[in-house]
């Protein structure tokens, strides 16, 4: 049996690892400020893509919603976190492989999952700051509703947990096929459409909304947007067990997150183990 003191020591060690990784990420980011700036501009460009596409299409017959700006900003905020998550863990693994430091991290007496998640958390802090910047920038042009900020933060926290799950999936992919840029682009791009990041779900026909519901990120987009804009969610019409529709969406997210994290960890560990067996940890 592990003594209580040992357990505390372990927790303390893990917190130290977390702090040191966050510190490392922040120091690296401060040394390469361009990374931070490019992330912001990437989000802006991706946003513009869809503004233009939507405009060209809507010169046909789509009635432009007056909430379009708000739809876009909250969609973008959610997407930005999602995109960061897709990059952060995979990029961490790949960068350490290329510089040959992955093995030196591996031989430290820490829980590897924790080291990798800590890195993700570190990147996350940085990009949360970038997100604030985007919201501020857009608020200069569009009126952005802040209906329920407290609930908004809870939803963003749930997204954060979800994103670790994605990060682990992507990290596993990097281990497996090394250069996963193309896949990451594909997933990001596909998600923009499937999860209706820049427009309401209501433009989709029913069968398309069903596809959206299968993508965990759709729930983040929908709940964040409906909460911040004070509208009814679009993915479900009414709540269950006496909960409101929004609360039900949050419960669904919690369940999805648990599943994602579990599968992500399992997959990542499988691939990692295989890399250890094959001796391909430092291959690039």
């Amino acid at each position: 049996m592990e003594s209580l003191a040992n357990k505390f020591k372990k927790i303390n060690n893990n917190i130290n690892v977390l702090i040191s990784q966050i510190k490392k990420v922040i120091i690296i980011q401060l040394n390469y400020p361009i990374d931070f700036v490019t992330q912001i501009f990437t989000a802006v460009f991706v946003g513009l893509w869809f503004v233009f596409l939507f405009q060209s299409l809507s010169s046909g017959n789509v009635s432009e919603s007056s909430d379009f700006g708000a739809f876009m900003v909250w969609g973008l905020v959610a997407f930005f976190f999602y995109s960061t998550a897709l990059w952060s863990i995979g990029r961490f693994v790949r960068r350490e492989q290329l510089t040959g430091t992955l093995e030196s991290i591996w031989i430290t007496p820490n829980n590897k999952n924790w080291v990798i998640i800590s890195n993700g958390v570190g990147e996350y802090f940085i990009f949360a700051a970038a997100n604030l910047f985007i919201i501020t920038a857009f608020s200069l042009f569009v009126k952005i509703p802040f209906n329920n900020l407290g609930m908004g933060i809870i939803i963003l926290f749930l997204e954060f947990v979800q994103s670790i799950g994605y990060g682990l999936f992507y990290g596993a992919l990097v281990f497996k096929i090394k250069n996963a840029n193309a896949i990451s682009n594909l997933v990001q791009f596909g998600s923009i459409i499937i999860c209706a990041v820049f427009f309401p779900f209501s433009v989709f026909p029913d069968w398309m909304i069903w596809i959206s519901r299968l993508h965990p990120f759709s729930w983040v987009v929908d709940s964040l947007r409906s909460n911040m804009m004070g509208k009814e969610p679009e993915l479900i019409n009414k709540g269950i067990w006496g909960l409101t529709a929004l609360q039900t969406e949050i419960v669904i997210q919690i369940l999805i997150n648990m599943a994602l994290l579990a599968i992500g960890l399992l997959l990542f560990n499988c691939v990692k183990k295989k890399a250890l067996v094959d001796g391909t940890l430092s291959h690039y």
């Binding site: 361009i34 490019t38 992330q39 990437t42 460009f45 991706v46 893509w49 233009f52 060209s56 990059w87």
Partner: peptide, 24 residues
């Protein structure tokens, strides 16, 4: 500048935007 991956990630969207991938 060292940070190639994020810069290129940015540029790919920018290039797509200006070359009119989906719109004239």
């Amino acid at each position: 500048f060292k940070e190639v991956y994020s810069l290129v990630n940015l540029l790919q969207w920018f290039f797509g935007l200006i070359m009119g991938v989906y719109v004239p």
